[in-house]
Write a protein that binds this DNA or RNA. Structure first.
Lengths: 231, 231
DNA sequence: CCTTGTTAGATTGTCGACAATCTGCTTGTC
DNA sequence: GACAAGCAGATTGTCGACAATCTAACAAGG
């Protein structure tokens, strides 16, 4: 018998779907930082009772993209320049580690997947789909974490990713520019295929620097931003 | 007027208390890995309805010490040798980073706090309080993370800590020995007070190795362990 | 004018009941 | 005896209603 492995069955709970909906709304910037999430209103919009909604919100609070104050409400996290800088510096350290772990495990399947994800980024770029471009770029970047075969590291990266995606989406929204059309990932992919691990790590660090520089400048700009209630 | 800053007010929701109770039960090993958490039974024991209990469980699932299967139940995570090894190797990387960030910020308050926590470990050791010894040792270890002034790093560490505490508690329980009476942290504390950062980092790595070696051997032993349902 | 106490409205936290789903056993058939 | 279908019990997921708490507006008093 062929050794085909089935993926996990779909989560058939309302809770899971709510989590996905809310997460997407937050990560794409449809829900702004600091904004309050009114349970009654959202539950009515989604045609769902408050119970699964509240459970979903609990999950997102632990995921780090919502924050909750008892009897006051649940809010989208505020984004400060320091948060971004913190995430950024940790990301550098984790990238280094992920590349180190992945390096000896690279094989043809890894290279194929690398190309596939790279292609997805290029496609989103051509289509001028900003949101998707951010998504695919992070997925490309995430491959080294999936390949590193360290479950704790992967989890950590996924938590970090949520915020990174949010930060980038906010940035793009603010700039309101279409999208960079050049390909920033060519060298990254090439180095991951090559033989010099140190070079790949070095490039990853610098690559991250490029991505974050603008982001930080932007974040410092809205540092004085005031959290605004919902409605 | 004196500039005294008030700490945050106590969480007065049942949910928060339930989270604390459950976490403690899991981290001290009172709830065994793989064990199922029956909502009705627990809610009756705690004299609480299922709503806040379920929300609490959602939080702990995201915290990584519970796992949930829709319509099947919520379980304490299984502990495999690989999980421990993964957490351990990541911990080494994070320690390195935390020490690097903390290093230039060390001051008298840091040293005082370091001594305070070290003292707490020694006291728990003298009292032969195993659980508390693990707790205080992790708190001592956590100081470099609190001092690093990187919120994302701190969060990551706290997530990791939950599991580490669980692993160590399980180990201690299995060995059923009182506790090592010697002081393993003397050198660690001394190096953090010293002038050689590299030496401190190197020692941290080796220090972790010592702690984990036993733990790994133990975990490999029960690798064949079968998840057992509740009741 | 500022402060303090009160009150109404809105929102979050919690509860008990019902619906959907799973599990194990029984039954019937071959 | 093996195996599928179906049923009963238990457990999780969801709902609507009620209780606890917060917020903001307003009144009373200094």
């Amino acid at each position: 018998m062929a050794k085909l492995d089935f993926g996990p069955i779909a989560d058939t709970t309302r809770r899971a779907e709510i989590v996905a909906l809310l997460r997407r709304a937050i990560l794409t910037g449809q829900l702004e930082p600091g904004q309050k999430l009114n349970e009654l209103r959202i539950s009515e919009q989604m045609r769902v009772s408050r119970a699964p909604l509240r459970e979903a919100m609990r999950e997102l609070v632990q995921e780090g993209i919502l924050t909750s104050i008892p009897y006051a409400g649940t809010f989208v996290i505020d984004v400060t320049a320091k948060d971004i800088a913190d995430a950024y510096s940790l990301n550098k350290v984790l990238d280094d580690f992920a590349i180190e772990l992945t390096w000896p495990q690279r094989d043809q399947r890894f290279f194929d997947e690398l190309d596939r994800r790279h292609e997805a980024v290029k496609q989103a770029t051509r289509a001028l789909d900003t949101t998707r471009q951010i998504e695919t770029a992070l997925q490309l970047h995430g491959l080294i974490y999936e390949w590193a075969d360290n479950s704790v590291l992967l989890e950590t990266w996924q938590r970090l990713t949520s915020r990174l995606q949010m930060y980038f989406a906010l940035h793009q929204r603010a700039r309101n520019e279409p999208v960079p059309t050049e390909d920033l990932h060519e060298t990254y992919v090439a180095l991951l295929k090559g033989a010099d691990m140190r070079a790949a790590q070095r490039h990853a660090r610098e690559h991250i620097d490029d991505d974050f520089e603008e982001l930080l400048a932007y974040a410092r700009g809205l540092e004085k931003r005031v959290a605004k209630g919902a409605d």
